[in-house]
């Protein structure tokens, strides 16, 4: 009698967990479905090659926003990835257990939880207010700040997987610590580090909030990375989605499709092409 009740509760709970998992995935498919359905009908060659049309007019594209997103990602990566990898090297190779590395590790974790809009405000005050220009540089810096903790964490995990024996073999041969790190440890972990960096890039390429105050947005081509505001896909999607024009709504869906495609490609390449043996 007791056993039937326990079995029933068991089945009920396990069933609930399965149903919840199903429920959790419904929004994903609903969202992807709508983005693909609405996006594909508005995608054409013009979308990739033309500037946005005048307000409310049909036609036009998001060429400048696509290029802008790529430029912003490039700036962010140039700043964020090296810094992130260097910090991770410090945390794994030089100083794993001291109070300083614990503090850095903890700060890194906390930094990932700071809302991106706050980073937008701070970078805007530090760069935009000082230079008097919204710029690709300011936008890139704000994305870099978001990237750094992500790169640190993923690189650190990968460096930790490199067996100690490899380092010790290097020392036994009399190789200097720098060469062991640069020529042995980093290449061993390279695939994993690249994976982590690409996931970080994918993560920031959809960021909108920090760009609102730093890169701003632009209906035209940008001529200076330091003096002109620059368009980006996420900000353009936001502007179009909240506008009253049907044509712009269609463009917003198409933009979303392109943005998701970029992010998805980065994710898939990171996961499958550079998958390290340990995963």
């Amino acid at each position: 009698m007791i056993n039937t009740r326990r079995n029933f509760v068991n089945k009920l709970m396990l069933g609930l967990f399965s149903v919840a998992t199903f429920v959790a995935l419904v929004p994903l498919f609903a969202l992807l479905g709508y983005v693909i359905k609405n996006g594909i009908t508005s995608l054409n060659l013009d979308f990739f090659t033309k500037l946005p049309a005048v307000m409310g007019m049909s036609g036009g594209g998001m060429a400048n926003a696509i290029a802008g997103t790529l430029i912003l990602i490039a700036i962010a990566s140039i700043i964020g990835i090296p810094i992130g990898i260097l910090v991770a090297i410090y945390l794994t190779e030089y100083d794993r257990y001291s109070w300083l590395s614990t503090t850095v590790r903890f700060t890194t974790d906390v930094l990932t939880g700071i809302p991106s809009i706050i980073i937008g405000i701070v970078v805007s005050m530090a760069i935009v207010a000082k230079t008097k220009h919204f710029s690709a540089f300011a936008g890139g810096v704000s994305l870099a700040v978001i990237m750094i903790p992500l790169v640190i964490r993923s690189t650190e995990e990968m460096l930790k997987l490199v067996p100690h024996a490899i380092r010790e073999a290097g020392y036994a041969l009399g190789i200097s610590q720098r060469r062991i790190i640069l020529n042995i440890v980093l290449p061993t972990a390279a695939k994993g580090i690249i994976t982590g960096a690409m996931l970080a890039v994918a993560r920031v390429s959809g960021e909108t909030a920090p760009l609102l105050f730093t890169a701003l947005g632009n209906q035209y081509w940008t001529h200076s990375l330091f003096k002109d505001p620059i368009a980006s896909l996420p900000v353009q999607i936001y502007t179009y989605a909240t506008s009253p024009y049907d044509e712009w709504h269609r463009q917003a869906w198409a933009g979303s499709l392109v943005l998701i495609a970029i992010i998805l490609c980065l994710n898939l390449i990171a996961r499958f092409a550079f998958r390290s043996r340990s995963n």
Binding site: Y34, A209, P234, A252, I263, N267
Partner: peptide
């Protein structure tokens, strides 16, 4: 697990767009 991570990879502005129109 991959699908759940995908949910995290979708940009917030796309969620917003979907929120407005769907």
């Amino acid at each position: 697990a991959f699908l759940v991570e995908l949910l995290a990879a979708i940009p917030s502005v796309v969620y917003g767009l979907w929120g407005i129109f769907v």
